[in-house]
Simulated scan of single mutants.
Amino acid sequence: MVLDLLLGLLVFGAVVVLAKVIGWNPLKPPRNGRVDVYPLESDDGRIPSLGSAPAVKSEDETPPLTGTETTTIVGSQTLECGEDGSYRETKKRTAGNKFDRDHIPSKAALQQAAKDYIFENGITLSERQAAALFGDYGLISMAGQVIVTPKGDHKAFSQTYTNKNTPEKIERDAGNLQQAAEEDTRAMEEAEGKEMDADCVEKYRAAARRIRAKTHQEYIDDLAKLVDDVQAKYPTGGGI
């Protein structure tokens, strides 16, 4: 056992030395048109959980989410059906176990758009910076706009609910976030048999109009600002 451990350490050391010699950086954007900043894409094209990355918690140390688009509202104050705001603004409020916060555009699309921006601009992120951007409580998730939606409606009618949000859809939505928001909200508004009552329907429509007014370039500008912010907060060279 001791011999195996020593052999493992020698192999690890050799890999580290080789990486330094050839200048290999696993966080550097590749030249294949994809953005492989940490966290790397999984085989199915989705952005996986952060795994062993440094934990990134919110100010109140709330436990991390599951990383899916199905996000149950937690907190002590009351939210109303159809209410909108950023994830950061709504995360401390609750409406029992009746509602989900639906990211519009989807969190995965926003994250992919940010990865595309990072690649296109030749930006290299440290592991800590990437974790702070892409974590369940990372800057992108926290800044994303959500609409409070009945759980049943979210599951039945949202185009981005869990496995409905395919890699192909994520890629397409990332290329035009305004159009993605339009499609997502129209699908919900036009669905028949919703759980929403009349008051919620009106609030949802008003929230959807506000979200649809934001242009794709405005989303990209906001994501660029988040990238700048995380680089300023966690400068490279200071470890993770």
Score class of each variant (00 low, 15 high):
118 I>F: 00
123 I>W: 11
85 G>N: 10
113 A>R: 09
90 T>D: 03
87 Y>A: 10
107 K>R: 05
118 I>C: 01
97 N>H: 10
100 D>L: 14
104 I>G: 10
103 H>I: 04
76 S>R: 12
90 T>W: 08
85 G>A: 12
95 A>D: 08
96 G>N: 14
112 Q>S: 04
78 T>Y: 07
87 Y>F: 06
97 N>A: 05
90 T>S: 07
74 V>W: 14
113 A>G: 11
107 K>E: 07
115 K>T: 07
107 K>M: 11
109 A>M: 04
117 Y>R: 03
109 A>S: 13
119 F>H: 09
113 A>F: 08
85 G>T: 09
123 I>P: 02
116 D>Y: 01
125 L>A: 06
103 H>N: 03
102 D>P: 01
123 I>A: 03
109 A>H: 09
116 D>K: 06
124 T>C: 03
74 V>M: 07
91 K>G: 00
111 Q>S: 04
86 S>A: 07
88 R>Q: 14
84 D>A: 12
106 S>E: 11
117 Y>I: 04
105 P>F: 12
77 Q>D: 05
97 N>K: 13
91 K>P: 00
91 K>A: 05
124 T>H: 07
126 S>V: 00
110 L>M: 12
90 T>L: 14
89 E>S: 10
125 L>Q: 10
121 N>T: 00
123 I>L: 07
79 L>M: 11
89 E>P: 01
82 G>F: 11
99 F>E: 06
116 D>W: 00
120 E>V: 00
84 D>E: 09
100 D>A: 03
95 A>T: 02
122 G>D: 04
85 G>F: 12
100 D>H: 13
78 T>Q: 11
103 H>Q: 01
120 E>W: 04
75 G>Q: 15
125 L>M: 13
87 Y>L: 10
73 I>D: 15
117 Y>Q: 07
78 T>H: 12
78 T>I: 14
90 T>P: 00
95 A>Y: 11
125 L>F: 15
79 L>H: 07
114 A>E: 01
